[in-house]
Amino acid sequence: MEEKIRVLVAKPGLDGHDRGAKVVASAFRDAGFEVIYTGLHQTPEMIVDAAIQEDVDILSISVLSGAHMTIFPRVLELLRAQGAEGIHVIGGGVIPRADARRLKELGVGEIFGPGTPTSEGVAYVRKWVAARHETQA
């Protein structure tokens, strides 16, 4: 059977702006991915639980509140604690370049800043999943 790419699009923290997350979710759907959308105000714990229950390939997190240096490391830590580091974390939102570099060092796959065409995110996800298939084969 055809393998579907599953992505969780998550919106952590207190900011209530999920338009970006919805745009990304729609772009992923239009690319043929199965997108689980969990709504606003999620804690890292809720996001990681959902990602594991849903058995996603990619966890895509949108942060606009400035809390990214707290949220991303916590998500990575929780994934590791649950033995789910195979889930690949990517992010987007208003995140300074220096912070993005630091987050990538910590294990975030890629950070997509404002103005990134959605096609870039789609291409990144496809490439990552294909590369994983190769290493598994």
Binding site: K4, R29, V35, Y37, T43, Q53, E54
Partner: peptide
């Protein structure tokens, strides 16, 4: 597109942090 938005979890916040409550979305 063959894609799907699975949004039922939005209405099921109780499933987080509870080992006795499991939700799986299916397309």
């Amino acid at each position: 597109s063959g894609g799907a938005i699975l949004g039922d979890r939005v209405r099921m916040p109780g499933a987080a942090g509870d080992e006795g409550f499991f939700v799986r979305s299916m397309a």
